[in-house]
């Protein structure tokens, strides 16, 4: 079983990196539907691997200068608080309910990540609150450093709390939700949104992983093949993403995601967890 879980996790990390939805989105349904693992063990193992992939990728992005450390730090208050709440709720909800919520969130995440991005604000139009928090920044654009402003701070902060809660409840990175908050609500440039989101995922997942560990939902025998599989899988996926022909792969994966989501909802609603 360990070897099969390792192979599955390798594929999950690979697919998660390709779509930007993260490995957790595949790991949790795979472990619970295919291997019959209790969904809370699956979530515990997934969270640990999410920390690994996020931290590994963040190291590269931070050096490239896209990540906005201030925005990340400020919003991490919302995501860690949310993660603690989400993880606490997960230990009280029945497994079937978690599965149904997982499926719904998965569909929603796939939908929002397929939507077009909002035009970023550029150097004008920031809000006063954003100015007080000094959230504005710049990133390496096509013509040198490009400055940008930030707005919608309370709305973004609120959405980040929700993203954190879902991460703690479902064992996923909630990257799509974080990007929604930053790209659509706070109007931060897309590349900055995705890299800062990824930067925050590690801290958010660490907050909920602590809760899962203390409640006994992190099993070394299960988390080991998951972590050792997802990490190289994600590395491979992001390498391929840098190349061409991702359109076909993305379409295939979108189908896989919808299938997984429907399976989770169906099995949860019929009480099979």
């Amino acid at each position: 079983m360990t070897l099969l879980v390792w192979l599955g996790s390798l594929a999950a990390g690979f697919l998660g990196a390709l779509t930007g939805l993260g490995g957790g989105v595949v790991i949790v349904p795979m472990l619970s539907l295919v291997f019959g693992v209790d969904i809370r063990y699956a979530i515990g193992a997934s969270l640990v691997s999410v920390i690994g992939t996020s931290s590994g990728a963040a190291a590269a992005y931070v050096k490239e200068g896209f990540t906005n450390l201030r925005i990340g730090m400020f919003l991490e208050i919302a995501t860690t608080l949310g993660a603690l709440v989400g993880a606490a709720v997960a230990t009280r909800l029945p497994a079937d309910a978690i599965a149904v919520i997982f499926g719904v969130v998965l569909l929603f995440s796939a939908y929002i990540s397929s939507r077009p991005h909002k035009t970023p604000l550029g150097p004008e139009g920031g809000s006063r609150l954003a100015a007080r928090l000094r959230l504005a920044g710049s990133y390496p654009g096509a013509h040198g450093q490009a400055g940008y402003q930030v707005r919608g701070v309370p709305g973004g902060f609120g959405l980040m709390f929700v993203a954190g809660a879902l991460s703690g409840l479902l064992g996923i990175g909630s990257g799509a939700m974080k990007v929604l908050a930053m790209d659509q609500v706070m109007r931060i440039p897309f590349k900055v949104s995705t890299t800062t989101s990824n930067f925050m995922i590690g801290v958010t997942a660490a907050a909920s992983a602590g809760v899962y560990l203390n409640r006994g939902y992190v099993d070394p025998g299960l988390a080991m093949p998951v972590m050792l599989g997802v990490l190289p899988g994600a590395l491979l996926g992001s390498r391929l993403l840098a190349g061409a022909r991702t359109r076909v792969l993305r379409t295939i994966f979108a189908v896989v995601v919808v299938f997984l989501a429907v399976e989770m909802i169906y099995n949860g609603a019929t009480g099979r967890f």
Partner: peptide, 14 residues
């Protein structure tokens, strides 16, 4: 040992 490794991973973002 595995659990300690997982703890190191959780401690990294901290």
């Amino acid at each position: 040992i595995i659990q300690f490794g997982l703890l190191v991973l959780i401690a990294t973002p901290v």
